Amino acid sequence: MPGAILVSAWIEERFGDALRAAAPGRPLAVLRGEALDGDPAQVEAAFFSGDLYPGGARPLARALHQAPGLRWLHTFAAGVDHPFFQRLLARGVRLTTSSGAAAVPIAHTVALYLLALSRDLPGWARDQAARRWNPRDVEDLQGRRLVVLGLGPIGLEVVRLGQALRMEVTGVRRTPRGDEPCATWPLARLDELLPRAEWLVLALPLAEETHHLLDARRLALLPRGARVVNVGRGALVDEAALVAALASGHVGGAGLDVFEVEPLPQESPLWSHPRVVVTPHASGSNPGNDRRAAEIFVDNLARYVGGKPLRNEVEAPAAGA
């Protein structure tokens, strides 16, 4: 008997017909609240959809733990640095992501940071709250040098918007391919590039080699007054070093959606810093994300059944790594 496909009740209601068309003859095991409508022992593939986060994550994990035949999990998110995913990879489970589903809304939030910090929106908001008429010059983004770390779907969309704002955009990825829409440097040359980065956007996944990629030493390489935007993972940046660089004025401002500790502790000085925009890990929040992630899953399900390469497959760590 073909293995079952585990999905949430929300996904079954909205995409059940598409799932059955992509995988004819495959039964659906449906997670309804805390209970699984189906036999976990028969589950071969599963979809961790956005409607299951955060409340349904525990029942899903419990069901997957009881699924010895699980071969593949697709997740609504792009990042898979959580130990939950690493344990599945260690079990030999294939893992795919919905990378790209939230790229446009996240890039729009980056544009919000760029415009808010360059036009001093935080200062204008304080003036408005104080009923203070305070006209002053603000910064122009046109011609400014923007460096984008990471050229996945999010980074590429940030590049497009940066170019639309007439910024001078340079991308960074581990190994340039030659088909990028902007000048692109290898990650190994990051230290050479940082002194030119008036605006720096981090859109990288978190991995061992990217943990604290932007530390005190690299922050010091930025030109004085540079702005830092992070929509990747909080631990890409040494947060204490960033706070110190903001306090000294070496970093002129920051737009931050992700943090080393989340929720951001109330005592963090980032909350009240006059040149920092804080958002609660919500840069990609958009009603259309769940639909786009589900469409990627349906496409991957057809690929899985047909024995074709899967989109956005995560490479399992090498044995002994």
Rank of each mutant, 00 (worst) to 15 (best):
L36T: 12
L146Q: 09
R177N: 07
A241W: 01
G253Q: 10
P269A: 08
E198G: 04
G79H: 07
R94M: 05
R91K: 12
G162P: 01
M167W: 07
A21D: 14
F84H: 09
R224P: 03
E139N: 07
L112A: 14
G25P: 00
R131Y: 04
R177L: 12
A294Q: 07
W124Q: 06
R311K: 12
L202S: 13
P54N: 00
R58Q: 13
D37Q: 15
R145T: 13
D238E: 13
A107D: 05
I296K: 03
S49C: 12
R131F: 01
S268C: 10
V305G: 04
R311W: 08
F259I: 12
A316P: 15
V110A: 12
R303Y: 09
N230D: 11
E208S: 11
R14F: 01
E180M: 05
Q66E: 15
R14D: 03
V80L: 05
L264A: 11
S285K: 13
L52N: 04
W271V: 15
Q86L: 02
A216F: 04
L194P: 02
F76W: 14
G3S: 14
V80A: 04
V104E: 13
G16K: 13
R196I: 05
R174Y: 02
D179I: 06
D290K: 15
I106K: 10
A188E: 15
T96D: 00
F48S: 04
E313Y: 00
L242K: 06
T175V: 14
F48G: 03
L52H: 09
L28F: 13
L204Y: 11
V148Q: 04
L149G: 08
G288N: 11
P309H: 11
E34L: 10
G143D: 00
W133R: 05
W185E: 14
V276S: 07
A77N: 03
H212M: 01
A188N: 07
A247G: 05
F259H: 10
G123P: 00
W72A: 02
D37N: 11
A22P: 10
V7L: 09
G171I: 02
V277H: 07
V110I: 12
P181S: 08
A197V: 11
P280E: 01
A321M: 12
H211W: 05
T170M: 05
A22H: 14
S49V: 10
A102K: 12
L112H: 14
L36G: 07
G150T: 05
D127K: 06
L88W: 11
R227G: 08
E198T: 12
G162R: 00
A116V: 07
H250A: 04
D257I: 10
D191Q: 11
R58Y: 04
R20I: 08
F76L: 01
T97M: 09
D215H: 05
V7Y: 11
D257T: 10
S268I: 14
E157G: 15
I296C: 01
G171P: 00
R91Y: 02
R132P: 00
V277I: 15
L202Q: 10
V243E: 08
I296Y: 09
A240P: 00
A318N: 05
E198F: 07
E139D: 13
T210W: 03
V305Y: 02
H82N: 12
R32M: 08
Q66S: 15
P122Q: 04
V278A: 09
L165G: 01
M167C: 08
P269Q: 11
P205V: 13
T96M: 02
P205F: 12
V30A: 08
V201H: 07
